[in-house]
Lab assay of single mutants.
Amino acid sequence: SSGGSSILDRAVIEHNLLSASKLYNNITFEELGALLEIPAAKAEKIASQMITEGRMNGFIDQIDGIVHFETR
Rank of each mutant, 00 (worst) to 15 (best):
I63V: 13
I13E: 04
K42H: 15
G3F: 05
A43D: 00
I13R: 02
L35D: 00
Q49T: 07
N25H: 12
D9S: 06
I13G: 02
M56F: 09
E44D: 03
G3P: 11
R72C: 11
L18I: 09
R72Q: 10
I27Y: 04
E37A: 14
E44Q: 14
D9C: 07
M50P: 00
A20D: 00
Y24Q: 03
N25I: 11
A43T: 03
G3M: 10
N16L: 15
S5V: 12
E31V: 07
L36D: 00
E70R: 12
A41S: 13
N26Q: 15
F59V: 08
I63T: 10
S19Q: 14
I66K: 12
A43Q: 00
H68Y: 15
M50I: 03
V12P: 05
A41E: 14
S1H: 12
L8C: 12
V12A: 11
S48F: 11
G4D: 12
K45E: 15
N26P: 06
N57R: 13
H68C: 07
G58K: 01
H15N: 14
S2Y: 04
L18A: 05
L18G: 03
E14I: 08
I63F: 08
T71M: 09
D64P: 06
I60C: 02
M50Q: 01
L8M: 11
I66A: 06
V12T: 13
S19P: 00
E70M: 10
G33L: 02
N16H: 11
E70A: 10
L36T: 01
N57W: 10
F29D: 00
S48H: 12
Q62N: 11
L35N: 02
E70F: 14
S21C: 06
E31N: 07
E14D: 04
G54V: 02
N57I: 11
M56C: 03
A40Y: 05
G65Q: 08
A47G: 02
Y24C: 05
S1P: 12
S21N: 02
L17N: 02
V67E: 00
G54Q: 05
R10H: 10
A34Q: 10
V12K: 12
D61C: 10
N26D: 05
L17H: 01
L23A: 07
Q62K: 14
E31H: 08
I46L: 08
P39Y: 04
A43S: 03
D64E: 15
G3C: 13
S5G: 12
E44C: 14
A40D: 03
T71I: 08
K22W: 08
L18K: 05
P39D: 10
L8Y: 13
R10W: 14
L32K: 00
L32F: 03
D61Y: 08
L36E: 00
L18C: 08
A11P: 06
E31W: 06
N57Y: 12
M50N: 00
K42F: 15
E70D: 11
F69N: 01
R72D: 10
G54E: 04
R72V: 10
H15V: 09
S6G: 11
A20V: 15
S21F: 04
Q49D: 13
S21E: 03
I51M: 06
F69C: 03
R10T: 10
I46V: 07
A40G: 06
S2G: 11
V12Y: 09
I66L: 08
I7N: 13
E30S: 08
T52W: 10
R72S: 11
I63G: 08
I13S: 03
E30R: 08
T52F: 13
A40P: 12
E44R: 13
T71C: 11
M50A: 03
V67G: 01
S1V: 12
S21I: 07
F69R: 01
I27E: 00
G33V: 03
Q49I: 08
L23Q: 08
V12S: 11
R10Q: 14
V12M: 11
L8H: 11
S6N: 11
G4F: 04
